[in-house]
Structure formats: C-alpha cells, structure tokens
Design a protein around this nucleic acid. Structure first.
Length: 374
DNA sequence: TCTGGGGTCCTAGGACCC
DNA sequence: TCTGGGGTCCTAGGACCC
C-alpha cells in the first residue's frame, strides 16, 4: 500500500469532526482476521517443560542472564515484574524473583510448532498470510459463504488451535489488516476484554483509538511518535486530521500520507497466502567482550561469513547472491554498514572488501554479514 | 532499558546519462 | 563549455516489526 502512495489523491478533504471511513467492505463480508498466539515462545517452552507452568519464564539469548542479550519473550507471570521483550537479560534478572527461569532461544522448536499452528489455520479453509512464528492474517476465500459473523470463525479458530496444539491465541477482526492487527491487542488476556476476540472497524475506530497516542498504531514507533508530537500531533485522532501534504514535507512523499492513513484506520486488505521468499539472509553477533584488535575483527568477519555460507547452502543453495553487506557496531552503539557487489568474488572476499571500507578502528561490539539475493 | 538477531521498506544524496 | 532538468541506479542510514 505504502509503495503506491506517491502522487495519488486518496484523501477526502479533512473534516472537522472525527472522519468516518467510507464503508470499506464489511457489506461484502470481506473481513480480515489477525491471529496471534499468546506469549508464543514462553508457551512452547512451558508445553515441553510442564513444571514451569505458573512460574516467571524468560526466553532470550543463550539462557544465561549474566550475558549480553535481550528478552525474546516473557511469560505473563514474568511480565508482572515489568519484564518484557527487548529488555536486557541482566535487567530482567534483577527485576525477577529467584524462582524465575531463563531459557535459551530454540528457533527450530518454535518453527516446528509454528508450522503446525499455521496448518490448523489453513485447514479452516481461509487464506493464510504468515507474518512470523506466531502471527497470521486470514481472509475467507471469495467463494466462501459470508453470512456468518466473523466472530464465529474467530471462535472456531481459537478452539481448533487449542485442541490441536494446546496453545491459546487471540483474534482481531477488522475490515483491513491494520484494523485486524490492532484489534488483536484488545483481545489479549489482561486487556479487559473477554473471550480473546475483538472487532475493530471504521464504526468504532475513533471510539477505541482516537484518544490513544500515535504509537498505538502498527507502523509508528518511538521515533516517529516523538517527531509527530513535535508537530503537535499526539493522538490518533489528531493524526487522522493532519494534512498529508504537510506530513509529506516532514516525513517524505510516501511516509507522510501513509501516516495519515494509519491514523484513519485505512489499510491494505489483501491477504497474500503465497509462500515467503526472503530477499536475503544475514548473520550477526554481539560479542560478550568488545573486540579491540582489527586483526581479530577480520578473523571474526571471516568466521561469521562461514556460518552465513552454511545457512545459505542449507536454505537457498540455488539463489545467486548479488551483494554482501557488513555491519559494524562500535562500542558506543554506533552502527555503520558498507556493502560490495559480489561479482566474481567469493562470499568471504566480498565481506573482507566491504570491511575494508570501514575506517574507524574503535572497539567493536557487534559484527554482521548479510547476503542479498539478485 | 547499557541496549539480540532476523528481517523489510523508505529516504536522500551522489553518480551517471541524455 | 561557467552550466538545465529529468530519470534511474546505487549506497548508507533510519525506522519499524517480530
């Protein structure tokens, strides 16, 4: 959607009351559902370690809270202590009681369970667009009967996921992906709503979200929210009433108008069930101790490139790599990237050529190598 | 909050070309 | 040759998401 915005006149004049969307499709029964597993990673771990149920569980890094790393998922019990994803593991350890459990990230296990969940969703007959391990958008195929309220489908999805995988999920219902995605947040346990299902449409968009801060929207994070606040735009309703042109001048020709659309609850409705095709793959590592010697930096780049090459050989052996990008994060958390076209070079040669573009020789905290496909 | 690792997309500036 | 304007490609950085 965003990539189609430039130069288009998609905006009605800014109204002086809460703008109402034109009816965007509920009449046709074209609902979008968003399914999101509850505390997915922690739930998978509790399933295979039942003795952990009810205890604060934190999954992240290699499971050692003394090391550099962040929380990937915290169980609801851990969240009670202010522990949330993105928090440094060491900080999490300080906040949690001694009976808290720290576990390493086990990607393969989560991928396997995720596959089963997505299969259950597909078995409903809906189109399923996978969004990650624990999320998906669903749409009824066009030929499906559409007399059922979407809540019926939502409830039956929750039931079958629970039955087949023992995992609970929340479901958001909307007229587009944006609405459905945000609706799920109101369906989550502890959100004050019953039943794990919430419907957010043009009919209740401003009632539910109008007074909320702009970062309640999917696509607006801390930086953009702050920048908007500097323009006097703090709430979703204020964003909805903002001028697309003025925001274009500040945020760029596509992002500016797109932000206003977010504020108005306008979004993409197309659910794309085609398999995910990566644009590239990368491998990066934060070192437990910063690296000061540039010779060691070179050695580490070669080593990480080897790991990446093995990943590529396993996942995309046939796809030609067009470009290699090296990322260096210096000790004060300043990150730079440099890339080179692969051409006739090997992956390692290209990575070293990219590394040669770096002139800083300060201590390094992270190195990354990324291959982009042609 | 001493800040992971895997990604995606957009922006802006410079190179280059006509 | 004192100097336009537009298009496209490449690159680095930024922001966001899970």
């Amino acid at each position: 959607l965003k990539s189609n915005l430039a130069g288009k006149t998609i905006f009605a004049p800014v109204p002086n009351h809460p703008p109402r969307l034109a009816d965007t499709g509920s009449v046709e029964g074209k609902w979008v559902l968003h399914v999101d597993l509850d505390q997915f990673i922690a739930a998978v771990e509790v399933l295979r370690h039942p003795e952990l149920r009810g205890r604060p569980v934190v999954v992240g890094g290699d499971g050692d809270p003394a090391k550099r790393g962040v929380v990937a998922t915290a169980s609801y019990e851990a969240r009670e202590y202010g522990v949330h994803s993105g928090l440094a593991l060491r900080t999490a350890a300080k906040r949690l009681p001694p009976d808290a459990v720290f576990l390493p990230v086990d990607r393969a296990a989560y991928e396997a369970v995720s596959e089963r969940v997505m299969d259950v969703l597909r078995a409903s007959g809906a189109l399923v667009e996978v969004l990650g391990w624990d999320e998906a958008f669903l749409a009824l195929p066009p030929e499906a009967p559409r007399d059922d309220a979407p809540e019926e489908l939502a409830r039956s999805l929750r039931e079958s996921v629970l039955e087949e995988t023992q995992l609970s999920c929340s479901v958001g219902i909307g007229e587009n992906k944006l609405q459905a995605k945000i609706a799920t947040g109101f369906a989550k346990p502890g959100s004050g709503e019953p039943a794990g299902v919430f419907r957010l449409t043009s009919a209740n968009w401003y009632e539910v979200l109008g007074a909320r801060p702009t970062d309640a929207l999917w696509g607006i994070g801390a930086k953009t929210s702050k920048k908007l606040a500097g323009l006097g735009i703090s709430t979703v309703l204020q964003l909805a009433r903002a001028s697309p042109d003025e925001l274009a001048a500040v945020f760029g020709p596509m992002t500016g108008p797109w932000l206003v659309m977010l504020g108005r609850g306008i979004g993409d409705r197309e659910v794309d069930p085609s398999p995910y095709v990566a644009k590239g793959h990368g491998k990066e590592e934060t070192f437990q101790v910063n690296i000061s010697s540039w010779d060691s930096v070179r050695d580490e780049v070669v080593r990480i490139t080897g790991l990446l090459a093995a990943d590529l050989a396993a996942s995309d052996p046939e796809r030609p790599v067009a470009r290699v990008v090296v990322k260096v994060r210096y000790a004060p958390f300043i990150t730079e990237t440099h890339g080179v076209a692969l051409d006739e070079l090997t992956l390692a040669e290209a990575a070293l050529a990219a590394l040669d573009r770096f002139t800083g020789r300060r201590p390094v905290r992270l190195l990354g190598v990324r291959a982009e496909f042609g």
